[in-house]
């Protein structure tokens, strides 16, 4: 008799657990027993295996083509927890750039570590200076033939640029792009010819900077005539907070 009641209680709890009807406390308690009680596990497996047949009449729907790439990027991409970055990656993959970037990021980690002094406004060691987090990126080609350090100056709303390697080809321009979420690249402007320079950032784009990716393409002189990138992607790097 008591056994029957216990059996019924066990079965009812198992069904409620499978349906997700238990409270948080009840669920935790159930899982603790489940972990150590083989009888409860077989009851759970029995009911779950049958309940799942309620999904048999759900028609399969092919997911969008890029989804597996996004999953792989989440799991195996460079260690970035930011979801926006993983979505931006799907764009980079479409641009054929992702492998180049993955290598670039590894290099960037080493380089940023070495060039931390680059951060504009970073405390210089005199007293307890406190600065807001700074967004910066190392936009680097796979073979380091083009390297641009970018740092966002929130006060001036400009990207401060320092091109430490590479130049535009004769009669061509280097154009800087922001890739955020799954959106098409947005032009930030043509890179100045000088090694150091700044590019003003449209205030509307500022919220998209954290977690975004900066990329540089080879474009006709004066910049892309179409509003989107037309030439090769030469370099890219994620914007990270320091």
């Amino acid at each position: 008799m008591t056994d029957d009641i216990d059996k019924d209680e066990e079965r009812a709890l198992t069904a409620e657990y499978i349906l997700g009807l238990l409270t948080d406390d009840e669920r935790t308690a159930y899982e603790e027993v489940l972990a150590i009680d083989p009888d409860l596990r077989s009851e759970y497996a029995f009911f779950a295996d049958r309940m799942v047949a309620l999904t048999d009449d759900i028609a399969p729907v092919t997911p969008p083509a890029g989804l597996f790439g996004a999953i792989k990027a989440d799991l195996f991409g460079t260690p970035k927890s930011d979801r926006a970055t993983s979505k931006a990656r799907s764009w980079l993959e479409r641009l054929g750039l992702f492998p180049a970037m993955a290598g670039g990021v590894v290099a960037a980690v080493a380089v940023l570590w070495a060039v931390n002094l680059y951060v504009p406004g970073a405390p210089t060691g005199d007293g307890p200076a406190i600065s807001a987090p700074t967004l910066q990126a190392q936009i680097a080609a796979e073979d380091d033939s083009l390297i641009v350090m970018a740092s966002y100056d929130a006060t001036a709303q400009t990207l401060v640029l320092d091109r430490t390697a590479g130049t535009a080809r004769d009669g061509r321009s280097l154009e800087l792009w922001l890739i955020a979420d799954d959106n098409p690249p947005v032009s930030l402007g043509v890179l100045p010819d000088t090694q150091a320079g700044t590019i003003a950032v449209d205030p509307a784009l500022v919220p998209a900077l954290p977690g975004g990716v900066l990329a540089i393409t080879d474009e006709p002189q004066g910049g892309s005539p179409t509003g989107g990138p037309t030439g090769d992607v030469l370099a890219a790097g994620p914007l990270t907070q320091t």
Binding site: I58, T62, P63, I71
Partner: peptide
Amino acid sequence: TSAKLFGVCLRVLGNRAEAEDALQEAFV
């Protein structure tokens, strides 16, 4: 299995964009 599992996401969530996110997270 992704087509079947995407069908399940769509059935539960009733919204394609959310279902895509859910499927991605489920495979992770």
